[in-house]
Design a protein around this nucleic acid. Structure first.
Lengths: 106, 106
DNA sequence: CTGTAATGATAAGAATAATAAACATTAGCG
DNA sequence: CGCTAATGTTTATTATTCTTATCATTACAG
């Protein structure tokens, strides 16, 4: 986001929790911020932002942190179709490749 | 990441899958790229990058997209302690607030 | 309790992400 | 099957992140 993205409250909360969980996981493993940042390939400051749930940090940073902690697995299923209840209800046929607006009523 | 972060293969794969899943979820809901981008608060181009699993996009973009799709729930548990098997094995006592290197042997 | 190393915070500069505009491509309605 | 609107791409510009360096704070070992 170049222009600061105004994130809805629940989204911001989810990020905060994620950051805190990442921090706790690091502490459980007794890894210092310096070492952790080095392994993940970014600076201590960026790690700090991640652990605070900063929404501006690139997704690569978060993913890299999760990778270092060995917690990448669950990420893959976040938006997996199997868990998309809303989507399953809507799906009636094969997915289109484009969304076309229905012809306006005369 | 200002300096392009070199992401390990599994991490990159996870992001690619996430992007694809987000795209499929959008299609299932019959939401066009323009409308989706507008609701999420960013441009069509950024949505495109997200759906391709671009690691440079800010995490806020991804989270906002998940929010629009109503798929925020699972995000919160990605790194939750309850699922941190490695961490649970390591945890023996109360978590420290800082990680201190053990005194070097003389 | 005390000293010290780990963490948090701040500022300035380099690198990159995000946007808008315009054009090329292509899916799918009719 | 053809037309049109939806999507993909490129370029130039702007805004913001990420980094390095430095200083302040504080938790922990001894």
């Amino acid at each position: 986001m170049s222009r600061k993205l105004h994130l809805p409250i629940p989204a911001r909360k989810a990020l905060k929790k994620l950051g805190k969980d990442i921090r706790d996981a690091r502490l459980r493993r007794r890894i210092g911020t310096e070492l952790m940042a080095e392994r993940a390939g970014f600076s201590r400051i960026t790690l700090n932002k991640i652990e605070q749930g900063d929404s501006g940090v690139s997704v690569g940073g978060y993913v890299s942190a999760l990778f270092v902690l060995g917690m990448l697995d669950r990420l893959k299923d976040i938006a997996d179709a199997r868990h998309d209840l809303i989507g399953l209800m809507l799906e009636e046929e094969r997915l289109p490749k484009r969304i076309r607006a229905p012809k306006a009523e005369k």
